[in-house]
Design a protein around this nucleic acid. Structure first.
Length: 289
DNA sequence: AGGTCAACCTGAGCGC
DNA sequence: TGCGCTCAGGTTGACC
């Protein structure tokens, strides 16, 4: 479900009830998500202080005292909800009554902190994951080893992207979805970025000429910034930690707009849906070349 | 080595 | 109402 803008929005929503706070009680309501919870997961979290909350790729990471980092991935349908009473309401994280928090059919992890607040991880498809890894060796962990640069970092520049795409025989759509090339992009924002850059999703990655790398890079930056500013995109499952919906879905130029007119000024094209590597791609055959 | 594709899960929406 | 089919924001491992 969530791509970088959604994950970043959730992270910001969780920060006030996690950073500098302690887990006072943690309950797992089933034994596994995409992968089994590590041994004594709930016990190892209880009493831990969250030193900082940050994001890498589509993972939310919480560095804890004691040298471990809590790793959260929302998969396709994962959601973090904050339940809190009056005081938390003032800092803008209140959504639901705390009573009954975490009792839903797909509420898999219930975490209480001394904010005080209750954070519930809900994920009906269970493609998400929660685990603990050593903070010092996080980069070498299987989950993080081999990830590409952050798309909004200085490392993701023209030189890097040109080299990363050079010689690739896969369509640019697939290349940008590959988290080894660049992290954080998913099915929505790749389609949107390629439309903004005027590049066909079917074009082979290695065939993009040097001058077109710049607009592609700018398109990726712009679409991610715009989406973060809008609080992400809410389609089916996604909501911010405070329960509010994102707004960026109203700004889609191509995603889920098959049959509708292209929004590029002066373009008379019609948005088309194709399948690439088993996933929907939306684009304008007229202005994306 | 590089690239494609099914599998992992559950639910919603649609046509009949 | 209900059945069967398709689709869904991600990642991984097996296969060509």
């Amino acid at each position: 479900m969530p791509e970088l803008p959604e994950v970043e929005t959730v992270r910001m929503g969780l920060a006030p009830v996690l950073e500098g706070r302690k887990f006072t009680k943690v309950v797992t309501r089933r034994g596994d998500l995409r992968v089994p919870f590590p041994r004594d997961f709930a016990k190892r979290l209880t009493g831990r202080l969250v030193k900082r909350l940050y994001r890498r790729a589509k993972y939310i990471l919480a560095d804890l005292d004691g040298g471990e980092t809590l790793v959260i991935h929302l998969g396709m349908s994962g959601r973090m909800s904050v339940y809190a009473e009056g005081r938390a309401r003032k800092i803008g994280v209140y959504v639901h009554d705390a009573a009954g928090a975490g009792t839903g059919k797909h509420d898999h992890v219930v975490m209480e902190t001394d904010a005080p607040a209750t954070i519930v991880f809900t994920d009906h498809r269970r493609f998400g994951l929660m685990t603990l890894v050593g903070t010092e060796t996080l980069d070498q962990d299987k989950l993080f080893k081999g990830l590409g640069p952050e798309p909004l970092s200085d490392a993701f520049d023209v030189k890097y992207l040109k080299a990363a795409l050079d010689g690739k025989r896969t369509p640019i759509k697939s290349a940008l979805l590959d988290q080894r090339v660049v992290v954080g992009l998913g099915n929505i924002y790749v389609s949107e970025a390629l439309w903004r850059a005027g590049i066909s999703p079917k074009r082979l990655a290695g065939s993009i000429s040097a001058p077109r790398i710049v607009p592609l890079l700018r398109a990726i930056h712009a679409v991610l910034h715009d989406a973060i500013a809008a609080g992400g995109s809410s389609l089916r499952d996604y909501a911010q930690a405070d329960g509010n919906l994102g707004e960026f879905q109203h700004c889609f130029a191509v995603y889920d707009r098959a049959g509708s007119p292209c929004r590029k000024k002066g373009c008379k094209g019609t948005i088309k849906r194709i399948v690439q590597a088993g996933r929907s791609t939306f684009y304008c055959p007229v202005c994306q070349k």
